[in-house]
Design a protein around this nucleic acid. Sequence first.
DNA 1: GGTAGTTGATGTAACGTTTTACCTGGCATA
DNA 2: TATGCCAGGTAAAACGTTACATCAACTACC
Lengths: 345, 345
Amino acid sequence: MVGKPKLETVAREAGVSVATVSQVMRGAGRISEKTRKKVLQTAKTLNYVPDGRAASMRSGQNREIGLAIHQIANPFNAEVISGASDLLETEGYLLSVLDARDDAARQRRQLEAFIGSSRAGLIWVPAQGTPTETCELLRTHKLPAVTFLRNAGFTDFDHVGIQNADATAIATEHLADLGHTKIAFLGGTSPVDVRKERIEGYSRILAERQLGPPIVWDSPDDKLSGVNAMTKLLKAHPEVTAVVCNGDMVAIGASLALTQMGLTPGLDVSIVGFDDIQDAEIAMPPLSTMAVSPYELGRKLARVVIERIKHPDMPVATTLVPAKLIVRNTSGEPLKSKGALRQGS
Amino acid sequence: MVGKPKLETVAREAGVSVATVSQVMRGAGRISEKTRKKVLQTAKTLNYVPDGRAASMRSGQNREIGLAIHQIANPFNAEVISGASDLLETEGYLLSVLDARDDAARQRRQLEAFIGSSRAGLIWVPAQGTPTETCELLRTHKLPAVTFLRNAGFTDFDHVGIQNADATAIATEHLADLGHTKIAFLGGTSPVDVRKERIEGYSRILAERQLGPPIVWDSPDDKLSGVNAMTKLLKAHPEVTAVVCNGDMVAIGASLALTQMGLTPGLDVSIVGFDDIQDAEIAMPPLSTMAVSPYELGRKLARVVIERIKHPDMPVATTLVPAKLIVRNTSGEPLKSKGALRQGS
DNA sequence: GGTAGTTGATGTAACGTTTTACCTGGCATA
DNA sequence: TATGCCAGGTAAAACGTTACATCAACTACC
């Protein structure tokens, strides 16, 4: 009762050998129904929980999967985590989340500690500026890994991402079709590949329609930053009548900025977001955005990492899921009244 | 190069014994500078990472801490995670997050897998309806644990929480002072202790000021639910002119509901939230709320769990942090004009 | 030159599992 | 009676570390 029970404790109590208890706990080997019951019974009363470290070490197996993400405090990511966690747990894995706040050195330390215990697999959003050595580390340790969102230029891993360029192209086309000719791109922090791809799609349409040079404005992906960035953007480029955003948070912030300036989103200036987070639908006014289901993305990730664990030698694959345009109230024709936007519901 | 390097690999390569390598890696024992350099060098080139399972098993130590939370997709919780993670990592621990989505059975499974590997400690928000056995499990395994927010009636653990009753009392008093006489309470799901405490503080003031019986309305803590709940609440109780909310998400939802109905928050109906999440400041109109810094709360949690790990036999303690009233634009005098709320900036 | 102390390095039992090969009876068959 | 076989169970060697005791080689001192 005093010490933590181990196999031997249960074995002694049940009057059998440790090997027998081990087999019973795992449902392996040939054990008579009678002893099985007895062992299970004593294990329960002792509150016995097998030591995962010892088990994993000896068997070379592990049911723990990590999710190293750049930012946990983001509704989109939270949904992804939910999706991945749901699927993994039904498959008998445990998902633990590591939040690096997009700091590569920090993520490196986390991964090292994580790898140290030889887990089953990893879903990985490489932090900004992840060096090749980190990738090398994963490869040396043969950890089944899937990169997500960003692949940091590494081709060693399975990858699940979003058709970024196509998505922003669709968004930009939508705005151009409405008649906008001065369209800016807002958001995304330092030069990550995701942002690059999204700017690429945006620029492509600008070029195709001959709408002048791209106007790209930086901003971290949260509302407060969105408000500030949008304010400055409009001050610097008053000619802009439409904005494609790198994320819904920043888009909602931009929309708020307009309201604060006495302008009406979708009327004076149009905005299209990216992600379709829950808040997008509920924002005032509701946000037009590029939707991709984060929950499904999470499930996809889980499936890919499980496949990789089961078949370590399969050739690596990349899955890019498309985004869908959802038109709500923040995108409309330029400088034309289209009715009150505020009447709601 | 092919297999995962272990202590022995490094030892052979460097021409020393495994014991020496082990000591070098941990900075323990007496090792000459010369061999130290050599060992470190070969370890680096081999990409050697010590096996945490073996180390932890043999030494009985572990630097991994778990955070079992009820809902990761909540800005308040996300901030708590950030705070805890920041402090723990500077102390050399790794924090991994387990999201149970407030499902007790699911959390039980997670905790079992977690405990199985004998981690260093646990920060625990018990899921709704956690049975005593789960607590028993933690106790049997002597896992240093701190409960957070809810203590599920267990007195075996350190606890960090919020002065819930006092906070809602302050909020209710604030509204009463402004002249409101029909004040409702909105939000909080099933009968958790947190909600009970908050309702208690609210009811206390109602009784003190003789403002009639409590009007309590249920709602999950997210915006969409807040919109719906507020709409129904006002339909059922049109006399209500002020609402104390169980969380900012639901409060912002309530505020949105008012706007959608053509009412002005803080003018027609006053609202006070709880948590002071980032969105509270930025909402339209900015939300009056009870502030408690989730980031600091996270750091506090980390400190408590580390103390508990270092001194397993200290008597358990409870820390309740106070909340501070922040008056923004959603709370004002009843039925009196106090100027435009929308002018922003 | 003998004793003691110090420095640097090593051999080897643990830690709690899983796995493999190996026992033991008992029963059926020849 | 002897042979083979099978169901049910066990002993013991791993897995990769750490901790402890031990050892060899020097230095220092009387």
